[in-house]
Amino acid sequence: MAAARRSGVNLDEIVAKFSISHRTAQRMTKALETTFANVAAEDGADHKRRWRIEPGALDRPQLPPRDRDRGLEIAGREAGAEGQLRHARALAGLREGLLARLSNRDAARAEADADAEAVLQALATVTRPGPRVSLAPKILDAVTEALRGPFQLRVRYKSEDAPERVLEPYGVLLGHRTYLVARDTAKGDLIRSFRLDQILSAEALDESFAMDTAFSMQRFAAQSFGVWQDPAQFGPVV
């Protein structure tokens, strides 16, 4: 009703529509304001307050900014903790854009939302044993650009003295360590994994390639022991 009527809806109309008491109608409008961000309440010429859903980007009721802000903040922290720096930057940008578009009222609420801050303070990432892997943003950017093409990727792997390789990237395995799944053009058709933290330099080339349509990242991941792949070890086990 609040979205369909240009002038919104007042308490008397809610009472008549749902056959409820005036007090229950007041609770419903309070719930409407609490649940959705794009609710406007104004007093009309008849001195009756009317509630309406303001048209937004999605033209429908939107979740309150505190929930979207909190979700983006949590996702960004998790991405950063997993070394997904590009994703963390993108999520931080989305969160800043969201906060910049808030009304003064909602911005004040977001800043004073002690509940959201308490939730964020209570979150922590479990530390796994072993060294922490740091991924260079330039490497991640080059890999992402190559995957979008798809384009071949020129890399130097493990050692500065090692010859450069030309890879055909198929995807990325995320986990304790992050691996690029790719085919080394100089070593046949075998698709295998390369540790991203051991790629010392990477450059997306202008040369595109035809991906093997029979390949599936989900199937490749399911056949891995962790991330280790050895086709000779696949077979029936009794």
Rank of each mutant, 00 (worst) to 15 (best):
G71W: 11
L72T: 01
E73H: 15
I74T: 13
I74Y: 02
A75T: 11
A75R: 03
G76D: 00
G76Q: 00
G76V: 00
G76S: 13
R77W: 02
R77H: 02
E78P: 04
E78I: 15
E78M: 14
A79T: 09
G80N: 12
G80F: 04
A81L: 10
A81T: 10
E82I: 05
E82F: 12
E82A: 13
Q84F: 14
Q84A: 13
Q84V: 07
Q84W: 15
Q84N: 15
L85T: 08
R86S: 15
H87L: 13
H87D: 08
A88S: 13
A88I: 00
A90W: 08
L91K: 04
L91N: 00
L91Y: 10
A92P: 02
A92L: 07
G93P: 04
L94I: 01
L94S: 09
L94M: 15
L94C: 09
L94V: 04
L94K: 06
R95D: 08
R95W: 02
E96A: 14
G97I: 08
G97D: 15
G97M: 06
G97Y: 05
G97E: 08
L98Y: 01
L98E: 00
L99S: 01
L99H: 02
A100I: 04
A100S: 13
A100L: 10
A100R: 11
R101W: 02
L102G: 04
L102V: 03
L102I: 06
L102W: 04
S103V: 05
R105V: 06
D106T: 00
D106G: 00
A107V: 00
A108F: 14
R109Q: 03
E111G: 08
E111S: 06
A112N: 11
A112I: 02
A112K: 09
A112F: 07
D113R: 00
D113H: 00
A114T: 10
A114E: 10
D115L: 14
D115K: 12
A116N: 08
A116C: 09
E117V: 10
E117K: 11
E117Q: 10
E117P: 04
E117W: 00
A118D: 12
A118V: 03
A118L: 08
A118H: 07
V119W: 06
V119G: 07
L120K: 10
L120A: 03
Q121V: 09
Q121Y: 04
A122M: 11
